[in-house]
Simulated scan of single mutants.
Amino acid sequence: MVIGRLRSDDIYNQVSAYPLPEHRSTARANQAAMLYVILYFEPSILHTHQAKMREIVDKYFPDIWVISIYMGITVNLADAWEPHKAAKTALNNTLDLSNVREQASRYASVSERVHAQVQQFLKGYLREELVLDNFPRLLNCLRDGNVAIRWLMLHTADSARDPNNKRLRQIKDQILTDSRYNPKILFQLLLDTAQFEFILKEMFKHMLSEKQAKWEHYKKEGSERMTELADVFSGVKLLTRVEKNENLQAWFREISKQILLLNYDDSTAAGRKTAANSGFGRGSRISPEVLITMQIIGDLSFAWQLIDSFTSIMQESIRVNPSMKGVADYSRKHVYFPSKDHKASDPRYH
């Protein structure tokens, strides 16, 4: 029953944070790790149930084979499932060199594109209006960046290659070549993405704190404008070529009343009703759920141990540019590494 639920359901409810198909493996990563562990309690599935294992691999491991199971502990499925016939066979398509090349090349392109975008945003282009008008694009940039960082860090790690296993060496070398792997560039992408994510979070926290005040302001302004338009057609305020029209006057007054009746607690629906008012429309997009989504996307707990491999790069960067120490400290604070207390209360880590 447990394996059945893990195979079919979105237990951790993270797919909604990763709506794009190319991010599905990351969206299901925590569930995939749990499924990997639980399968050892039903070894017959690993050994003989080829159809089930093929279904599991196609859903959870079509483009990943190095996973993090807990506190940064990583497992290479190519090695772990070697003794298990059904599991090993099911993984063949994922480990095919053409697929390895495709994934490595894809993440190389994604990381280069995202890094350029992030650096552009960090140059000072992040203003409130831009964030509100382009938030889906900014959030997709964060998703792409974090997914690329995750894939590259896991699949280029030393733990991803057994020096005594020829096939694993070949796969790892293929990844390093096709991804044009450069640990310094990857580390800089990690720092820049962390800074970008932090700035976005702080901006949204600020906008959330001011949301109700701005809502009331735009509500009052919208009602007053409708009243003014109603007065234009009353025949009292004469404007060139505007004749008295009692129907339009009544209509605008009714809209003014409807605006005053709008409820802040249902601001999203109200925003749809008042799309003409840009203040209402923009403000209605801000919700605490955005911060939750960003928290999920920015989860770097998989790199709890892998991050140590970048210590020498960080130290060298600080020697060359002492101001990097502030950036490194800044990123350590704001890249999401769950605390032990958080892990104790978070079902994803049970």
Rank of each mutant, 00 (worst) to 15 (best):
G4N: 12
D10K: 01
Q14Y: 02
Q14M: 10
P19I: 08
P19R: 06
P19C: 07
L20Q: 12
P21D: 13
E22Q: 15
R24N: 13
S25Q: 14
V37Q: 05
Y40L: 01
F41C: 00
E42S: 06
S44G: 08
I45K: 00
H49E: 15
H49W: 02
H49V: 00
Q50V: 13
R54G: 12
R54Q: 15
K59V: 07
W65M: 05
I67G: 04
S68F: 06
Y70V: 03
V75Q: 04
V75D: 03
N76Y: 07
L77F: 00
A78G: 13
A86H: 06
A87R: 01
A87M: 01
L91K: 05
N93G: 08
N93Y: 02
L95V: 05
S98T: 11
V100P: 03
V100T: 10
R101E: 13
Q103I: 12
Q103E: 13
A104D: 09
R106M: 13
Y107D: 06
A108F: 14
E112W: 00
R113L: 07
R113V: 04
V114Q: 02
H115F: 00
V118R: 02
Q119M: 00
F121V: 00
K123Y: 04
L126P: 00
E128T: 12
L130N: 10
V131A: 06
F135I: 00
L139E: 09
C141P: 04
W151D: 07
L152I: 14
L154C: 02
H155D: 05
T156D: 08
A157N: 11
A160F: 03
A160M: 08
R161P: 00
N164E: 12
K166Q: 14
R167I: 07
I175F: 06
T177S: 12
S179T: 11
R180A: 12
Y181C: 10
L186V: 14
F187T: 03
Q188H: 03
F198N: 11
F198V: 04
I199E: 10
I199V: 14
K201D: 09
M203W: 09
M203Q: 12
K205M: 11
H206P: 02
Q212P: 06
K214E: 15
H217C: 04
K220N: 11
G222M: 09
G222S: 15
R225N: 11
E228C: 01
A230S: 15
S234P: 02
G235D: 12
K237R: 07
R241G: 11
K244G: 01
K244N: 03
N245P: 03
F252C: 09
F252T: 01
R253I: 08
R253S: 13
I255Y: 08
S256D: 04
S256A: 15
S256V: 05
K257M: 10
K257D: 14
D266K: 12
A269G: 15
R272H: 14
S278E: 13
G279T: 10
G283Q: 14
S284R: 13
S284F: 12
I286P: 11
L300G: 02
L300K: 04
W304C: 05
Q305G: 11
L306A: 11
L306C: 07
F310G: 09
S312E: 12
M314R: 01
I318M: 03
I318R: 05
P322V: 05
P322T: 04
P322R: 02
K325M: 05
S331W: 03
H334K: 03
H334E: 05
H334Q: 10
K343Q: 15
A344Y: 05
P347L: 11
P347T: 04
R348H: 05
H350Q: 09
H350K: 10
